[in-house]
Simulated scan of single mutants.
Amino acid sequence: MNTTNETRGPAEFEKVLPGSEDAVVFEEDRATVLRRVHHFLHAYPTAVPFIVLLFTIGVFSAIVGDRFFAPFNLSLVLQQVTIIGTLGIAQTLIILTAGIDLSVGAIMILSSIVMGRLAVVSGVPVGIAFPLGLATGMACGYLNGLLVTRLKLPPFIVTLGTWSIFGALVLFYSKSQSLRQQEVEAVASFLQWTGNAIPIGAARLTFGSIVMLLLAALVWYMLNRTAFGRHIYAIGDDPDAARLAGINTSRTLIAVYVIAGLICAIGGWILIGRIGAISPNSGFNANLDSITAVVIGGTSLFGGRGSIVGTLIGALIVGVFRSGLALAGLDALWQEFAVGVLIIVAVASDQWIRRISL
């Protein structure tokens, strides 16, 4: 019985096969290129959403034509994503710690209702009502952080519960009644200030968008230039290792939720300026939209990786998709369909990048 082939190893088989050395070199080169791509995407998480944004703009400019690049349409897209971008900034802080906050939309609405009804209905001076509205957002965030850290409950469950609680408080305090634009303007016009705009040719840049960009710049600085920001990334990457390194994880998490609540309250102020009125029914899907912007923007749902810039790009991608599809004459149903596909692709990409980088 001839056992020659049975005793040969894989390397010997490769030498026997014609052209096998070239095939091995090709496979090694391809693996090296993929590895470099993986490391690049892991080091620069905003690269993918930025490429997607440019590709999306190119596609819709080819389909829709000059209407897409009209200054008015571009400024309208920015106005539409201002609320999503603002809440996305808050959501990014939470997700970087490997958590998630389903209550950001409810916190935003509750804060806007508090500052609005105190000023318009109760006659409290705006200089007092506005800070109380901000304090409401911070208190909601503190409650979320306290439940997550003290009771050791999953952030998803905690914020799912507080989402219902804050939503019930909105209906209770507002009595399911909206305050019209004229009522707010007559008593507390400052609350509508974020809706004012600076004309730039045919475009309009609202103060709400400027506030969003300033918030993004401040949070970016905090995450990238302060020890507190490094602690946030460390907790999201490995909470046990962060604890062993001397980081007070509970205090840091509570601070993150409080800051996120404050940003949501500022989002409530921007919301009043956006719609001109104070309504308990506005921003109903804002919590899901904020998660969409964060995920599409390249922030990992597992924590420890992501950026504020990526979140803003993610919000712009959602706005560009909806605007482009609307200009193309497609139904709103397909706009939501496209956004859903984007979310799945973004999460799949994150899994792929994370698996290679581990």
Rank of each mutant, 00 (worst) to 15 (best):
F284P: 14
P125Y: 09
T292K: 03
I272R: 04
I232M: 07
A43W: 12
A241L: 12
D289H: 08
V81W: 03
T46C: 13
R67K: 12
I63F: 15
N196W: 10
Y233I: 08
N224M: 05
S279G: 08
F130P: 00
L301S: 03
F26M: 14
T136S: 10
I107D: 00
G229T: 05
R67W: 09
L244G: 15
R180T: 10
V339A: 11
M212V: 06
L53G: 14
R36I: 07
A168C: 02
V309W: 09
A286V: 06
G161V: 03
I235N: 00
T159E: 04
S122W: 13
F302Q: 12
G116K: 09
S189N: 11
A23K: 10
S61M: 15
P45V: 06
L76C: 08
G58M: 10
G283P: 02
A234R: 00
V339S: 05
T7E: 13
T56K: 02
L17H: 14
I200Q: 02
R204V: 05
G201S: 04
A348K: 10
T82I: 05
S122K: 10
I57M: 14
G303C: 01
V37L: 11
T149D: 06
G65D: 08
T86S: 11
G201T: 04
R225C: 13
V64C: 03
L214S: 14
A90F: 12
T299I: 04
F207C: 13
R305P: 09
V211N: 01
G306C: 05
L93P: 04
P45L: 07
L93G: 01
P125F: 05
R305F: 08
G85Q: 03
I63T: 13
G324F: 04
D331K: 06
V24D: 12
E336W: 07
F13W: 13
I165K: 06
L316A: 14
S279M: 00
I235A: 06
N196E: 15
T97H: 01
L34H: 14
G329T: 07
A332F: 11
E14Y: 10
L74E: 09
V121H: 02
I275Q: 03
A241F: 09
T299S: 01
T82S: 15
G137R: 02
E28H: 07
G273E: 00
L262A: 01
G105E: 10
C264Y: 06
Q91V: 06
P155W: 00
I235P: 00
Y44Q: 12
H38C: 15
L74T: 06
V104S: 07
S111F: 04
I270F: 08
L76K: 12
A234I: 05
A315D: 04
T162G: 03
A346Q: 05
A260H: 03
V104D: 04
N5V: 09
V114H: 02
E183Y: 13
D66L: 08
Q335K: 04
P155M: 00
I95G: 02
G276T: 11
G268R: 08
A234Q: 03
Y142P: 15
H42K: 11
Q91M: 08
I353S: 07
N73V: 11
T136Q: 02
D240N: 10
G167K: 01
I83V: 12
L218S: 10
F26G: 10
G314Q: 07
L151D: 06
A315F: 00
G319V: 01
R8F: 07
F337I: 15
T82M: 07
I165G: 03
L213M: 09
R243L: 15
I291Y: 03
G145S: 13
S20Q: 11
S111C: 06
